[in-house]
C-alpha cells in the first residue's frame, strides 16, 4: 500500500515539472503577438480545459498505439523506413505521465500567463534600457518575478494532480487507488482499504500544502507590498 502511495507520488513528481515546462512554452506562445504562435496555443488550452481528463486518457491510450501501428505497417515502410516494433506501444506509466502533464500544462499555462502579465512592463523596459536582449530580460528579470507570483496556484494544482492521478488507475497504472481496490477485492476488505487510501491521499496533500508554505516563504521579496501584513492597527 505504501509502495502504491509512492507510485502516486512518483506519477505526480514526474508529471508536474513537465506540465510547468510545457505550460511555460504554451504561455509564451499565447502571449506572443504573432498569430502563428498564439492561436495554436490558445486552441490547445481551450480544448484541453474543455474536455475531461478521463476522456483524454482513453483517447491517448487507445488511439496512439493504432497510430503507431499505422506508422509501422503503412507510412514508414512507404518512405523506406522499417521498424521491428510499434514505435508508439506506450506502456501504461508513460501514457499516464504524458496525459497528466499534457492536461495540467494547459492549466499551468494560464497561471503562468497571468503571472507574467502581472509583472510591471517597466521591468522589461528597464532591462532593455540597460542593453539586455529580450531573452535576457525575460529569463533574468521577468520570469523570476513571475515565478514568485505563480508558486501558490501551482502548488494548489500540484495537490489537485495528486488526487487526479487516481484516474490513471483506469489504464492500469498501479497507483494508490488501483492498489487499494485490488488488495481490497482480494481480501474482501474494500471499504477498509479505500479508507486507508483516502488517509494516504490526505497525508500527501497536507505534505503538499506544507511544501507550498515553505516555498512561498523562501521566495518572498522583502519590502514587496503584498507582504506588509503586520501593519500596526489601533484597537
Amino acid at each position: 500500500m505504501l509502495r502504491a502511495a509512492g507510485a502516486t507520488l512518483l506519477l505526480t513528481a514526474a508529471s508536474m515539472p513537465l506540465a510547468v515546462v510545457f505550460g511555460l512554452a504554451l504561455a509564451a506562445m499565447r502571449i506572443s503577438h504573432r498569430r502563428m504562435l498564439s492561436w495554436p496555443a490558445a486552441t490547445y488550452i481551450e480544448v484541453i480545459r474543455g474536455t475531461p481528463l478521463l476522456v483524454q486518457l482513453f483517447v491517448v491510450y487507445y488511439t496512439l498505439p493504432q497510430l503507431g501501428n499505422y506508422l509501422q505497417t503503412d507510412l514508414l515502410p512507404r518512405i523506406g523506413v522499417c521498424l521491428e516494433t510499434n514505435p508508439l506501444t506506450w506502456n501504461n506509466w508513460a501514457v499516464g505521465i504524458f496525459c497528466l502533464s499534457a492536461n495540467y500544462a494547459a492549466y499551468e499555462a494560464e497561471i503562468l500567463r497571468a503571472g507574467l502579465q502581472a509583472i510591471d512592463p517597466g521591468q522589461r523596459e528597464a532591462a532593455l534600457s540597460l542593453g539586455m536582449s529580450e531573452r535576457q530580460a525575460f529569463f533574468i528579470i521577468v520570469l523570476p518575478q513571475a515565478f514568485r507570483v505563480v508558486v501558490p496556484p501551482i502548488i494548489n494544482d500540484l495537490i489537485a494532480m495528486l488526487k487526479d492521478s487516481c484516474l490513471v488507475s483506469v489504464i492500469g497504472v498501479p497507483e494508490l487507488l488501483f492498489k487499494a481496490n485490488g488488495i481490497g477485492k482480494a481480501r474482501a476488505t474494500v471499504a477498509q482499504m479505500l479508507t486507508v487510501a483516502a488517509a494516504l491521499y490526505l497525508t500527501l496533500s497536507l505534505g503538499g500544502y506544507a511544501l507550498g508554505r515553505l516555498l512561498e516563504k523562501r521566495l518572498s521579496i522583502r519590502g514587496a507590498p503584498e507582504l506588509h501584513v503586520d501593519q500596526p492597527h489601533g484597537h
Binding site: D120, Q123, A126, L128, S129, G131, P144, Q145, I221
Partner: peptide
C-alpha cells in the same frame, strides 16, 4: 545602441528580486 543611453524612470523600475 541602447547602451549609449542610460535611462532613469519615473517609477524607478528597480528589479525587486
Amino acid at each position: 545602441m541602447r547602451r549609449h543611453f542610460g535611462m532613469v524612470f519615473q517609477r524607478f523600475n528597480l528589479f525587486p528580486h
